[in-house]
């Protein structure tokens, strides 16, 4: 498996509304292999979502380069598909099947007579086979996120960018979503970059974990645990403590106010 995504010295700056410069992401470099499942973890406002948005092409970066398969990323494209935390990312005026068909038509990747069949296959993949004709409002939060994943996969992305996709769900449906996501990943072999602030979620899911602190990488660690991961084992707890320790030592002197300067919450202006 070769290298798929490469970030070189990526910097993204923001301005607060008073004109002060705040760092979103600073001098970040790492690579992601094809088929890899990596998690980026860190507290709210540490820039991990910003980093994901830079990879997606939603944000113009101030410095550095991001390459996908050797090509420089300049703008959003269906080869990197984003799944958001919000439960409003499906188009409410289309049924699930139509949502997926819309995406496929927009990227013109699929022949028109195959679209409906492909949409159905994608719904089956995420466990929503009987719900193709439902409108988004008729679904639970978990089902909406499943449908969003089905839609994302339908355009055949090289990387799935997931920004706390299960953050709005309760613990029970989150567990089911983890199960489904791993199944989908095994089947499609799609590369996944998963942003979360939940350390256990990251351990359960990913091959590799990047610990992120305000603007930069604290640690880049391979997950040593065998799949499926069982939270009750000593190895699991040890790994959890190791990751947790990274944040505790690194976050001691950091002003909590700074953490709140999240791009989303403080309405920072991109510079």
């Amino acid at each position: 498996m070769g290298e798929l995504l490469k970030l070189c010295d990526v910097t993204k700056l923001y301005k607060t509304s008073e004109g002060k410069e705040a760092v979103g992401v600073q001098h970040v470099s790492f690579t992601v292999d094809e088929g890899e499942f990596i998690s980026i973890i860190g507290p709210s406002g540490c820039g991990k979502s910003t980093l994901l948005r830079c990879i997606a092409g939603f944000e113009k970066i101030n410095d550095g380069n991001i390459y996908l398969d050797g090509t420089l990323i300049k703008k959003p494209g269906p080869d990197r598909f984003m799944i958001f935390q919000g439960l409003d990312q499906l188009f409410p005026w289309l049924t699930l099947k139509q949502n997926i068909a819309f995406a496929m038509k927009a990227v013109k990747a699929v022949k028109s007579d195959e679209i409906m069949q492909r949409a159905q296959n994608n719904l089956e993949l995420v466990g929503l086979s009987g719900f193709g004709d439902y409108y988004p409002y008729q679904l639970s939060g978990g089902m909406k996120q499943r449908a969003s994943i089905a839609r994302a996969l339908s355009v055949g992305p090289k990387v799935l960018l997931m920004d706390e996709p299960f953050g709005s769900l309760d613990a029970f449906s989150r567990k089911a979503m983890h199960h489904m996501l791993l199944k989908v990943w095994n089947k499609t072999k799609v590369t996944i970059i998963f942003v979360t602030h939940d350390i256990e979620e990251a351990i359960d899911l990913s091959d590799r974990i990047i610990a992120f602190a305000p603007g930069c990488i604290l640690a880049d660690i391979k997950n040593p645990l065998e799949r499926p991961r069982v939270r009750e084992t000593a190895l699991y707890r040890n790994f959890f403590s190791e990751l947790n320790g990274i944040f505790e030592t690194n976050f001691k002197g950091i002003d909590l106010e700074f953490e709140r300067l999240s791009a989303k919450k403080a309405k920072l202006i991109s510079v």
Partner: peptide
């Protein structure tokens, strides 16, 4: 909703296409 617009941009839509296919029904 910002998410819907960004899904549109993610699909490579912009300008009039984004307006017709997403902004129009979303603001109906």
């Amino acid at each position: 909703p910002a998410n819907q617009l960004e899904v549109g941009r993610n699909l490579g839509l912009s300008g009039l296409k984004l307006g017709r296919d997403i902004m129009l029904p979303a603001s109906f």
